[in-house]
Amino acid sequence: MQEFQLLAVHDEDDDGALGWQERALCAQTDPEAFFPEKGGSTREAKKVCVGCEVQAECLEYALANDERFGIWGGLSERERRKLKKRAV
């Protein structure tokens, strides 16, 4: 759950670089959906991400910080790994 808590925190010292997290829809929904058990469904989290205005910023953050758990920017960890491999 620590990863989700990061989404809801605004970093005042970062001059708003992480300010997108305040506008993230996931910060207003059930965190369990974004960190499903292994083999669990990611469908509900991805539905939230589709309508989120900061989806691109979220994905960029996850890729830059090598987030290994949860749904970030509408992608699972496996999907983010594939995306990174294609970019290389």
Rank of each mutant, 00 (worst) to 15 (best):
P31C: 12
W20P: 02
R68F: 11
R80C: 02
K84H: 09
R78H: 12
K82C: 04
L75Q: 03
F4K: 07
K82H: 09
G40C: 12
E67K: 09
P36Y: 13
L18W: 09
K47G: 03
R23G: 00
Y61P: 01
H10L: 00
E44M: 13
L25V: 04
G16M: 01
E57W: 03
S76L: 13
E22W: 10
D30T: 12
K82P: 01
L59N: 02
E57H: 06
A62C: 08
A8I: 12
R68K: 14
N65K: 07
W20D: 02
G39F: 08
M1R: 12
A17K: 05
E12K: 10
V54W: 02
Q2W: 15
E12H: 06
L83C: 05
V48A: 06
A24R: 03
G39W: 11
K85F: 11
Q5M: 13
C52F: 13
A27I: 08
R68G: 08
F35Y: 15
V54N: 00
D11N: 13
A24Q: 03
L59R: 02
G74L: 04
P36S: 12
K85C: 00
Q21W: 03
F34E: 07
E60L: 01
E79L: 09
C58R: 03
D14Y: 10
V9I: 13
K38E: 07
L59F: 06
A24M: 06
E3M: 08
K46A: 06
G39D: 03
A87N: 09
G74Q: 01
L75M: 11
E44L: 14
G39T: 07
L6Q: 07
R86T: 08
A33T: 14
D14H: 10
L59M: 02
C49K: 00
W20C: 03
R68L: 07
A56Y: 11
A56S: 10
R80M: 07
Q5A: 12
Q28W: 10
E57N: 06
L6C: 04
E44T: 15
L83D: 00
E44D: 15
P36R: 10
T29A: 14
A17D: 05
F4R: 07
K47H: 13
V9M: 08
E12V: 04
A17T: 02
G16L: 03
C49H: 02
Q5D: 14
R23I: 04
